[in-house]
């Protein structure tokens, strides 16, 4: 990433003082100009590689979903078709799994928010012994191999008669969101300047009014980012869900396993694209936040 940022010409972003302005508009020596040019080219190349790396597989998916025949050396499919979309949409279980996924992801996100946001507030705005241990401890849950964790959860669920229930899926999906749902809002709560809260108290607002009118309102970008990431994580969760629903309750990601095994690659591609649609829609809906720098704001952790 350093190459990319170095490639951006350090133009006079803030020209408050004459000094800065003069410094930036001074004549460059040819050597300096060549070096800046080189950095620009390197930066552009690095950006191109990065874009290809991220978008490349998606392009392949999109092409595959509409291809009839596509053999290896060809860059584009020989013939195009919409048949795979028809095949997928004609399978009621596939369509059903889409709605089920949506449902479970929404419930899991909501429950996660209900549990984690108060914790995030406590971690972000209060000092108590063991605060850092809790924060790091939450993070450490991600260090264990997921499959091992899910296996022991499955054992537990069998004992509690939770196996193969909706509750089990919600719990499993929720577990994966806890770190996101605690850390990001905690940072958002922590970054509200104390003077803003003091000003509200000074104006006559009690602690509750101050929380809802100022603290929560200021933390919304961070909370929104956490909600989006949690929802996407739930929507995409396959490993745990696969393990705790031996029979019924297929969600889209678990359906992928079946599809990959039993259908041609093109049908899987169609399904994969269908799986990305909610994510893309969601990101478009909140692009104001992302472009406005609120996403980055949400990640400020002290």
């Amino acid at each position: 990433m350093t190459t990319v940022s170095a490639g951006i010409p350090s133009g006079p972003a803030t020209v408050d003082t004459d000094g800065e302005l003069a410094d930036d508009t001074r004549q460059l020596t040819p050597a300096e100009r060549r070096r800046r040019m080189l950095w620009k080219v390197l930066g552009a190349l690095a950006s191109a590689v990065l874009v290809l790396f991220i978008v490349g597989p998606l392009i392949w998916l999109a092409l595959a979903a509409f291809s009839d025949q596509w053999t290896a050396p060809r860059l584009l499919p020989q013939s195009w078709t919409l048949d795979w979309w028809k095949t997928v949409l004609d399978q009621p279980e596939l369509v059903e799994s889409f709605w089920r996924s949506l449902q479970f992801a929404l419930i899991a996100t909501a429950v996660s928010a209900a549990i984690c946001l108060p914790a995030a507030y406590a971690l972000g705005r209060t000092k108590f012994p063991g605060r850092r241990v809790v924060l790091i401890g939450l993070f450490a849950t991600n260090a264990f191999p997921k499959m091992g964790l899910y296996t022991s959860i499955a054992t537990l669920f069998y004992a509690m008669n939770l196996m193969n229930t909706g509750t089990a899926i919600v719990i499993v999906q929720l577990l994966g969101t806890i770190v996101t749902m605690v850390w990001i809002p905690a940072a958002a709560f922590a970054s509200v300047p104390p003077s803003l809260l003091e000003a509200a108290r000074d104006a006559g607002a009690g602690p509750l009014r101050t929380f809802f009118s100022i603290t929560l309102r200021q933390a919304i970008p961070g909370i929104a980012v956490a909600l989006i990431l949690a929802f996407l994580a739930c929507f995409d969760e396959a490993q745990g869900t696969y393990l705790v629903k031996p029979g019924s309750y297929s969600t889209m990601p678990t359906m992928m396993y079946t599809l990959v095994e039993n259908y041609p690659a093109q049908a899987a591609a169609v399904f994969a694209i269908a799986l990305t649609i909610p994510s893309v829609l969601l990101l478009l809906a909140v692009r104001k936040y992302i472009l406005g720098g609120h996403l980055a704001e949400g990640f400020q952790i002290k």
């Binding site: 300047p193 003077s195 000003a199 509200a200 006559g204 100022i214």
Partner: peptide, 20 residues
Amino acid sequence: AKPEHRPTAMVFQNYALWPH
């Protein structure tokens, strides 16, 4: 008395205007 119960009003050094 708590700040909200005092007949005082403060102008803060960094103004502390609510940005939203």
